[in-house]
């Protein structure tokens, strides 16, 4: 690991100014991913600005309904928050399905969103990777691709975003609050992460020096139920092969409101808007759910090792919506 400077920020403005002024600077949250990358030689910042002491560690109900989650709220605390558990169970379930207890105690809300792919080639400085070193090529595309993308990938990158929490937030229509040198802006969660295109080195639309300060959730959809289902070989402490976050409201046997997001399939949390459109007003039956899943997945492009993700996603979307419609747990 290269030596680096460390500064502990006490207010947002100073933190933003410090990182914005130094191209080699990075914000440090819980460190559960950035420090790993530094040890692996994948990241080598000159300066770390620790933001975990900033006054951003609260979960607050918003006056007009909804919830504001501070960027330094730890994953464990967010998962255990009574309001989250009662009104946004999909978020609590997603958080608890991620990492391990020890990591969740450290990992922050903002850091979780900004964690980077665990593509084995990205994490190995000895192999070419367009995300790590633009222009060197993608080792994954013709390599080991069991964990890689089936939706929205490009010639230059087939990595997936690893977060569970972000998938739930995508289904909840969350909005990210970011502060940069030019002030504050609100970014829909689904617009925060990018598809790789020909610039896979850029995971998000954030500019250097912009700091996530909060995530805001709209008030819960009245009468809707939500759930998160993560599919993986190992029962715990493994990234998703496929995951599904869904919010569903059914009335008179028909789908009135539905939001579906997929994890483990794309460079970003994948909001399944085609499936949602196909379901609005449709009978809330397993057949319809499967049909809608098929519409969403029609665009899937598979690699050598990941074709199984398509039937896995189809079956899991179907099962999660079926269980939500039934009123049972998925």
């Amino acid at each position: 690991m290269k030596t680096f400077d460390y500064r502990r920020a006490t207010d947002v403005g100073t933190a933003v100014a410090a990182v914005a002024a130094d191209p080699g600077a990075a914000f440090l949250g819980g460190g559960t991913n950035l420090v790993d990358r530094m040890k692996l030689g994948v990241a080598s910042p000159d300066l770390l600005v620790d933001v975990t002491r900033l006054p951003l560690d609260r979960v607050q109900e918003l006056p007009g309904g909804g919830l504001r989650i501070g960027a330094t709220v730890r994953n464990s605390d967010l998962a255990a928050d009574p309001v989250v558990r009662a009104h946004y169970p999909v978020l609590s379930q997603a958080l608890l399905s991620g990492a391990s207890g020890q990591l969740r105690n450290l990992a922050t809300t903002g850091g979780n969103l900004l964690q980077r792919t665990r593509c084995v080639y990205f994490q190995d400085p000895d192999t070419p990777c367009n995300k790590r070193e633009p222009g060197t090529g993608c080792s994954a595309r013709d390599g080991y691709t069991r964990y890689h993308a089936v939706l929205g990938a490009s010639e230059s990158c087939v990595a997936v975003h690893p977060s569970d929490m972000a998938v739930a937030l995508a289904a909840l229509d969350a909005v990210v609050v970011a502060v940069g040198p030019d002030g504050e802006r609100w970014i829909p969660l689904t617009d925060l992460h990018r598809l790789p295109g020909d610039a896979p080195e850029r995971d998000t639309v954030l500019r250097h020096g912009e700091l996530i300060t909060a995530v805001e959730l709209p008030e819960p959809v009245p009468g809707a139920r939500s759930a998160y289902r993560k599919v993986r070989d190992r029962a715990s402490f493994a990234f998703a092969l496929v995951s599904v976050a869904a919010v569903l409201r059914v009335a008179d046997g028909r789908v009135r409101d539905v939001r579906i997001a997929l994890g483990g399939v794309a460079h970003k949390p994948w909001r399944a808007t085609r499936a949602e459109e196909a379901l609005i007003g449709a009978p809330a039956t397993a057949e319809e759910f499967e049909r809608a899943a098929g519409i969403e997945l029609a665009a899937a492009r598979t690699l050598r090792d990941n074709a199984f993700k398509v039937p896995t996603a189809r079956n899991t979307i179907t099962a999660v919506l079926r269980d939500l419609a039934r009123g049972g747990d998925s």
């Binding site: 084995v120 000895d126 080792s139």
Partner: peptide, 19 residues
Amino acid sequence: RFGHVVNHDLAEYHVAANA
């Protein structure tokens, strides 16, 4: 192509967890 084990750590080379 490279000759090395690409999942060369315990994050990617899985052994059973308690669960």
